[in-house]
Computed example of a mutant assay.
Amino acid sequence: MPWAIWIKNKSVVLGDTMINNIRWDPLMIYGWTDKELMEAWSFIFPLTDKSMKDSCLPLTNPAWFYTPNPWWRFTLERPPLLPPGQMSSNTSKTLLESDLSEASLDLMERELVPLEICQRKFLTGESTGILIQGIHPQLKLIQTITTTASFTLGTLTKQTQLNLLEHAITLMTGTIVHRENLRQVGWKWMTSRRAFAQECESFEPHLSPKMNILVWNCREAMKPFFRSAIRDLTNLHSPGIIVVTESRISGSRAGNILRSLPYDGIHTTNPIGYAGGIWLLWRKDMVDMEVLAATEQEIHAIVKEHAPSFPGIPNAALLQGN
Score class of each variant (00 low, 15 high):
M1V: 12
I5H: 08
D16Y: 02
M18R: 11
N21F: 06
W32I: 14
D34C: 10
K35Q: 13
K35L: 05
A40D: 08
F43A: 11
I44M: 09
F45C: 02
D49W: 00
K53G: 00
D54M: 15
L59D: 03
P62E: 06
Y66H: 10
W71Y: 15
W72A: 07
P83E: 10
G85Y: 04
M87T: 09
E102N: 13
D106N: 15
L107F: 14
L107C: 12
L107E: 14
Q119D: 00
R120H: 09
T124W: 03
I132T: 05
G134R: 02
G134H: 02
H136P: 00
H136I: 14
P137I: 08
Q138I: 06
L139E: 02
L141N: 04
I142N: 05
I145A: 01
T146I: 11
A149K: 15
S150D: 15
L156A: 03
N163P: 00
T170I: 15
T170W: 06
H178V: 03
R179Y: 07
E180N: 10
V185Y: 08
G186Q: 05
T191C: 13
R194G: 00
R194N: 09
E199D: 15
E201V: 12
F203P: 00
H206K: 14
V215M: 02
V215D: 06
E220Q: 09
A221M: 14
A221T: 06
P224M: 05
F225A: 14
F226V: 06
I230S: 01
N235S: 13
H237C: 13
H237P: 09
H237M: 04
I241Q: 06
I242M: 13
R248E: 09
I249T: 08
S252D: 10
S252K: 09
I257F: 05
L258N: 04
R259Y: 02
S260M: 08
P262G: 03
D264L: 01
I266Q: 01
I266G: 01
H267K: 12
A275L: 08
G276C: 05
L280Y: 06
A293V: 04
A293P: 01
A294I: 08
T295Q: 09
E296D: 13
E296T: 14
E298F: 15
E305S: 04
E305K: 07
P308E: 09
F310Q: 04
I313F: 10
I313G: 06
L319C: 13
